[in-house]
Design a binder for these strands. Structure first.
Lengths: 214, 214
DNA sequence: CCCGTTGTATCACAGGCGTGATAGAAAGGC
DNA sequence: GCCTTTCTATCACGCCTGTGATACAACGGG
């Protein structure tokens, strides 16, 4: 016995509309009325599902983070145990995993755009700071874990300071996302990927050593 | 015979106030009234020096970019001909130059904060897009030039793709700035610098080769 | 059928915004 | 001293914002 409307689906619909408005007009111009219009909903309806603007924003940001997180966890699951792959393959898989952070297709481009707008907003918006903080820590943890696994497999060059390398790779991913979102014409998706490949190649042992070590 | 007020100084005063408001409250909440209050000026006065909000914003962004640009050019002048230094010194000088982009002290922190807020705003603000675009290109040119000089001096490892390396280093700088501004507690200035040093060290020939080559 | 819950739709209000218009003060060349 | 230019200060207007209040429709269990 289904209820007339599914509140959860309704919220998703609203949040999707919000994302579209943010991508199109920026978070600054994302008002309740604009979102309602985009969702083809009356503002009264919208407010029935979100008590306040803050509620909507918080829920939207949380939703975005959940989607990214889910996709990453799913990707990690699909990979399984990294150490069972040959080392060159490990690098390829790692690139693919980290590419989830990059705006390489339209969907991820939109996602990174929203991500960026929300996160920069948190600097002066205490209500969302915790979310942003946790995300930043989460990203670092993931990057650190990935690097640790590669290191444990002997794929990386010895003597790397993983703390620094984590920060370096994280900053690289952030910077690539920023550039691509702000200046898509200056940095094509493929170039973005090339940079990531180069970086990981740089952290790893030379190819001949890798293939010998397979 | 000095005029009672120097219009140029007045504008600088207003722009400085605007920067403080942006740092404190974010660009979103930087209204004419807020800037006027921060500058302890009447909004009528403010509007006498800036015909419209757009004028003020454009002038402010241009001013910020000019300051960064001036500081960089000045720094480059101070260095002079890079190739006359030993190679390890070249790296140190390069780190120092590129550190001008990083929020390592309070002044540069504020600057990067404003820079970031303005640039992210340009995504959905056509009025400032050109400025942002030129800046992005300018940064890439500078980074490319620095890498080229190092390469010409034989300080870098051979076989590097400077196009990719330019993008990589630019993204790294952007990412470090972003992290430090959004999460100062997660990435200390010194760590920021460590990452940059590591990166440049990574691009260059091993130290023993460098000292032999001096 | 009836009633409570759920959803939809409006209205009104206070507050902030950029901006046009305007009035008055202050300064400086003549 | 006068007059023009420069500067300061206010008022009012229309627009958009989030939100409280409220009325009305629609559903679904009893």
């Amino acid at each position: 016995m289904p209820k007339h409307v599914d509140p959860e689906a309704r919220r998703r619909l609203v949040v999707d509309a919000l994302f579209r408005v943010v991508v199109r007009d920026g978070l600054q111009r994302t008002s309740l009325r604009a979102v309602a219009a985009e969702a083809e909903l009356n503002i009264g309806s919208l407010r029935h599902y979100f008590a306040s603007q803050h509620d909507l924003m918080h829920f939207a940001m949380q939703s975005m983070l959940d989607r990214v997180s889910d996709r990453l966890l799913d990707h990690i699951d699909r990979i399984g145990d990294l150490s069972r792959y040959p080392r060159t393959e490990q690098l390829r898989l790692t690139v693919e995993l980290l590419a989830e952070f990059l705006p390489l297709d339209e969907s991820r481009h939109a996602e990174v755009t929203v991500f960026l707008d929300f996160n920069t907003a948190t600097r002066t918006n205490p209500a969302l700071r915790d979310l942003s903080r946790q995300t930043a820590e989460g990203t670092r943890h993931l990057v650190h874990r990935v690097l640790s696994r590669l290191d444990a497999s002997g794929t990386l060059r010895p003597g790397l300071d993983l703390t620094i390398e984590t920060e370096r790779l994280t900053a690289l991913l952030d910077g690539l996302g920023l550039s691509t979102v702000l200046h898509p014409d200056l940095l094509a998706p493929q170039a973005c990927l090339d940079v990531l490949v180069t970086h990981l190649g740089n952290l790893s042992l030379p190819t001949e050593t890798l293939t010998r070590g397979r």
